[in-house]
Write a protein that binds this DNA or RNA. Structure first.
Lengths: 128, 128
DNA sequence: GGCCACTACTATCCAAAGGAAAGTATTGAG
DNA sequence: CTCAATACTTTCCTTTGGATAGTAGTGGCC
């Protein structure tokens, strides 16, 4: 039995198929900022500003976009407290907590194996 | 001088840090086509054309780009057999096989949970 | 009353990446 | 010379990512 995409016999879901909604979902989840945002939210509900500080280097536009996409797919809940100053909280849904596991393993793998990975900025040994 | 990741102690590696090479690696791996390409290559070495057929809907430009990025980071090996017609084979390195695990779990999660996920095409329910 | 700080975005401009379709290079068959 | 096969590369256009600045609402300060 192969261990590839067709591991399960559930329906006709196949990430390798162009027309499967899987593809869309994979596109949303398999992104740097989604993986990081979901990872940050594993620590509990957080506000926009806190997420911005946690995901160092993210611009507010991209963070908003990321969170809205995750919200649209049901991975995070967005709650507005109309207090002063405005207060918005993001938290993982049950679905979001579920996907946080494989995403966390990916992040952990990267951190664990970084030393064995060639980085993008690697220079070719210029001989001479 | 060195950022949190160049010390050799993976305890210092932090994907949430902007300057950490982790970020680069995560960016390469956490993409739709990378996850799919690595998944396809789990089944064994494959040629460009085979990968193109397996990753349904991918354009040759994007597939080339994806494979070259994975190669540059040491996740796949590219072997050219200068026969006629030209023959090129891609296969996972040891590193690639390692990351195939968390990536496979992500793909599997998507396929398993698709029924509970709101798809992209969903419009915001105009309430009121 | 006016200004600043705080919070959460939204807008703008530019560059990089994604995607569809056609073209390139090589060589044997006909 | 064209046809076929393989693996890209090129072109054009749209989408997304990224840096920076501006918007909106209210309380505190002076």
């Amino acid at each position: 039995m192969s261990v590839a995409c067709t591991t399960g016999q559930h329906a006709d879901h196949d990430v390798f198929a162009a027309q499967c909604p899987c593809r869309d979902v994979l596109d949303v989840l398999a992104s740097k900022w989604s993986a990081l945002a979901i990872g940050a939210l594993e620590e509990g509900p957080q506000r926009f500003g806190a997420l911005q500080r946690r995901l160092k280097g993210v611009s507010p536009k991209v963070l908003t976009n990321t969170l809205r996409r995750l919200e649209a797919h049901g991975f995070v809940d967005r709650t507005v407290y109309p207090a002063v100053p405005l207060h918005v909280e993001y938290e993982l849904t049950k679905l979001g907590s579920g996907v946080a596991e494989p995403l966390g393993q990916l992040r952990a793998w990267v951190e664990d194996n970084l030393d064995g990975i060639r980085s993008t900025g690697v220079e070719e040994p210029a001989s001479g």
